[in-house]
Design a protein around this nucleic acid. Structure first.
Lengths: 218, 218
DNA sequence: AAATATTTTTAGACTAATCTAAAAATATAT
DNA sequence: ATATATTTTTAGATTAGTCTAAAAATATTT
């Protein structure tokens, strides 16, 4: 049996290794899990014993295929619940994360398969992240970050990196949502801010916003 | 903060005291919680410290108003999730209990209020049990147990006491569901079995079935 | 009312997950 | 390449919930 805490560590390791495929180090996990390095060491030993992770002392950790399977399944559940919350229960995209963090740990294959069907097999969650299917495969969308978009081109907003309530509320108040069409007008070299055109407005966004917004060329 | 285990103990105490309003004894809780009496003693001390229960050594335990509030809220969540599972996710009434046991512990007022609205404020769960409203009030239905129904009268099936999968499947296979009209034909004094008439059939049910089926006179 | 049985509590130990503080290993700087 | 800094691990303690076995309290029999 896998515990809730083990699941959360596995998920954290998965996310930390998904941007860059090498081993994940103890401190990174500690900061992601809001805990201390010593606790992480204990846990990765346990994950290693249970064959969810490969671990050699002082050398960081990687997930085994089993571990990855667990991680992807939790991500599937998390994202399906997020869709449910937004589409059926009137949650906004900045409110779903915390509740989904809990719902994702409910263990019932029937529950998640039926939920998937009830939602008509969605492929993206409310933040534009792909939802793995039952077998763990997910769509790979070719997206770039606004910071690297080219001046003069038009893009569609397809996702966010930062899913914090603060950032999502900022986007809401500037009328940026998934699907919004964005044209890059000007990049300011001084502070890396970017002027973009939306449907009815032009706004300037800071570098930190530009780094967290995913676009697809149209 | 209230833990999952505390919530489960509170729920168990509530259910044990709801049939008969006096104090609940340690062994009863131990058997309901599938644990040992010594563990129960530890926990009721803790619940007492946290003001969810009143407890005097060797004298059993009762819930405080706070404790009752917690219990009713969990029951509300449990039953709303059951309705969701049956009405939206194609679960049958014998499959919902286990999953609802987990879902009931998700803590989010918005989640449960929106779920309630999404389900159009149901007042009964799939087993005929009333669903408390936000304030904790629930409908009291005047129901009797089949074992005490009178020969010759007609009744509507309004609930079950035993919600085990075994019993519910037995009812399914005999075409008894919530709303089914039942006429009592004969009571057999020898073994307390009862012959009842359904829409298209007559069947004999044992005493243990008769004790677990709730009816309302029509 | 004394003897016996049952129930409940206590005492002490265990596991999972965590922590602090110190030690060990690795990485970086001079 | 040696010293210093950083990262990681170990050692030992803590908390929540559980257990077993023994002790204490209550209930039941005779």
């Amino acid at each position: 049996m896998i515990t809730l805490t083990e699941e959360n560590y596995i998920k954290a390791i998965y996310h930390l290794s998904s941007n860059g495929e090498k081993t994940v180090n103890t401190n990174a996990i500690a900061s992601a899990m809001q805990t201390k390095a010593s606790s992480v060491t204990d846990m990765i030993k346990k994950l290693s014993e249970k064959n969810y992770a490969d671990y050699k002392k002082y050398q960081g950790v990687t997930l085994t295929d089993d571990g990855k399977r667990v991680a992807v399944n939790i991500i599937r559940k998390h994202r399906l619940w997020e869709v449910f919350l937004v589409e059926k229960l009137n949650f906004s995209w900045d409110e779903v994360h915390e509740v989904a963090e809990h719902l994702e740990h409910i263990k019932s294959d029937k529950l998640i398969d039926e939920l998937d069907a009830f939602l008509e097999f969605p492929t993206y969650d409310p933040h534009g992240d792909p939802i793995p299917d039952k077998e763990g495969n997910f769509k790979h969308i070719e997206k770039i970050v606004l910071a690297k978009a080219e001046v003069g081109s038009a893009y569609k907003c397809v996702g966010v990196d930062d899913t914090s309530s603060k950032f999502l509320k900022y986007l809401d108040s500037n009328h940026i949502a998934l699907g919004t069409i964005i044209t890059v007008k000007h990049k300011e070299p001084f502070d890396n801010s970017i002027k973009i055109a939306l449907e009815n407005s032009e706004i300037v966004v800071s570098q930190s916003v530009a780094k967290n917004l995913y676009l697809k060329k149209i």
